[in-house]
Design a protein around this nucleic acid. Structure first.
Lengths: 343, 343
DNA sequence: GTTATTTACTTAAACGTTTAAGTAAATAAA
DNA sequence: TTTATTTACTTAAACGTTTAAGTAAATAAC
């Protein structure tokens, strides 16, 4: 191979020297500038290919004030919903040659703040975020917006903020799911959820309440159990104790990992699903149909939400001049009934 | 607020002007250089904090030839194993103030090649990769190594390459799992797996074969089913057809998503697990204990593998001068027996 | 009291791109 | 034939850091 590079990493200057051209010409040729002859473009591209030239993204980002990178900020990654969202984002961002950095808040407001604060540095061109469940003060988000970094919320938004959002119809889904439990004969339905300020949890709670109200089922705060928002034995205990004391005949679970906990609790207490207790859960786990018994789920359009969120961001970034703060999309979730609510 | 910045993004030059210092002093003060007085350091840090100064990472990376970013290249993300690995990586990388870019190959060799080729640009300081199952030509990986980018393989390595690896004992796990099936009374055990060049699949296949051999169970190629490496209805059909024709009484499944497919196939065919057929699967799904019936699994130390892999990379990057190509770690997986192999 | 060393800074170049502005040669317009 | 325009480049500055090298003032050594 006569490539004159001795295995050293090649940069634009070296490439220019090889071709007897200026770096400006190389740069423009590679970006297909009208300013460069077709012949030269071909020569440059051939040489770049042959010598494995790849432009240094830091130099490029520094000069252009564009990173071609977006940040995805989520509470957890070991969750079917979030990983499917990432798949959706990747399906679009990958094609557009965008890179994405992932940040996990572990559902902690403090981490979220320190993660977002760093984004004023120009590291990313935009942010897709699903906020921590205990995020109520949104100053860190406003600060980012004021710094000119576009933000799109998905799933968990901060309703009080003027920002783009892609969510699902949590209120209605919870309402329909609760109705379904009532229709299947439940008289005492408990909500197993997570404490948090974000709207998805309050919406799900309100949907649940509305359904109960409409069926004249009295429910008090003792029918709601607040669990930790991660998979722990503690949650199993919480649910067991609740079932022992409140003796519900229906459960609405608002997060994925609660399905396993609730099932284990039922198995431990020898409660038969659905005969003794019926269960619905918000989850995208593919194992739902093979659980014991198959689980009735509220299936969220995770992949599509990811696509839509990143699509909005790209539309903004490509200067199609949409106003992000006016973009709000609510994609429908679907109640998939299975044996866990059958009879 | 008298911050002289009018809401514009502040850079080092602006900060220097505010403090009547040179940018060199600012830079050194923020990095705690011995060259700067404590008094000045305090002044600088206070002002930086107050004005929300965050250094531009592109400028910094360009100058230092360090990105403080690593790449994680995996086949899929909607998989408990990989998402737990990411959690492990994040648990270390997050603390070290490293950022990570995620790239999905969708198990395609071509995508893997084009993703890795880009890494010679200096975008990342190192790469953690689990190769695509059909990667046999490893030129793209060697090229990256020659360019001086450190690589650590996890789970799926390229055994022929001199590179660090963190794997689990696939051979032995498959061997033990198959033995377990035999001990539980299986006489005809099928392997449901995925076609691929990577060692995990061949190791699992060999472990399976060795166990059968030792028990003098004759097995032919008709006992092995090669599925697509993603969750599809096609796989369910493949498995059903195999069970109809080969009539196995035991199944060893080598990838997570096959558990759901196999269970559905059994349900459809009215085969009772474990009475008619016993099942073991390599999976980290938390729902394993609540499946119908609870699934015997080979649980991989995903989180620890992520930690170990990124730990090796950091040890190398911090110039502790370990030789990556000599680092090979094999972490043990654990057979967790449940009803799917009971009697 | 002169010289050497230390302290606490500053100056300026460099990292590898992109791009506005400039230019010489070729072509078109008058 | 002269002038205007177009083509295909080059020059040089800029992006925001880091750092080697330099320096003036203060302190220490002799």
């Amino acid at each position: 191979m006569e490539d004159n590079t001795n295995g050293k990493k090649i940069n634009m200057k070296a490439l220019a020297k090889v071709l007897n051209l200026s770096t400006a010409t190389i740069s423009k040729a590679l970006r297909d500038s009208y300013d460069i002859s077709e012949q030269t473009k071909a020569r440059v591209k051939e040489a770049a290919d042959r010598l494995n030239y790849v432009a240094n993204p830091h130099a490029s980002s520094l000069r252009k004030h564009l990173s071609n990178t977006i940040a995805i900020v989520i509470p957890e990654i070991a969750d079917s919903f979030f990983s499917q969202v990432i798949n959706g984002i990747e399906s679009i961002a990958g094609k557009e040659k965008y890179h994405f950095l992932i940040y996990l808040t572990h559902d902690s407001y403090e981490r979220e703040v320190s993660i977002l604060n760093e984004f004023t540095s120009g590291r990313v061109d935009g942010v897709l975020i699903s906020v921590a469940s205990n995020t109520s003060d949104t100053a860190h988000i406003s600060k980012l917006q004021q710094a000119g970094i576009p933000i799109v919320f998905f799933d968990r938004d901060c309703a009080q903020l003027p920002a783009a959002s892609v969510t699902t119809d949590d209120f209605n889904s919870a309402y329909l799911a609760t109705n379904h439990l009532v229709e299947q004969g439940c008289k005492k339905i408990s909500l197993i959820t997570v404490q948090g300020y974000v709207s998805i949890f309050s919406s799900r709670e309100e949907g649940y309440r509305k359904a109960l109200m409409e069926h004249a089922i009295v429910s008090g705060s003792s029918d709601i159990v607040y669990c930790a928002n991660k998979y722990t034995d503690g949650n199993i205990t919480l649910i067991s104790e609740h079932m022992a004391s409140a003796r519900p005949d229906g459960l609405l679970l608002t997060v994925e990992h609660l399905a396993t906990s609730a099932y284990l609790a039922c198995h431990q207490m020898k409660l038969r699903i659905p005969q003794d207790i019926k269960i619905v859960c918000f989850t995208n786990q593919i194992t739902a149909p093979v659980l014991d018994p198959p689980l009735t789920t509220i299936l969220q359009p995770a992949f599509e939400m990811g696509q839509k969120a990143v699509g909005l961001l790209f539309e903004y970034l490509s200067h199609n001049y949409i106003k992000l703060e006016e973009e709000h999309f609510v994609l429908p979730s679907r109640l998939v009934t299975r044996e866990s609510t059958g009879n």
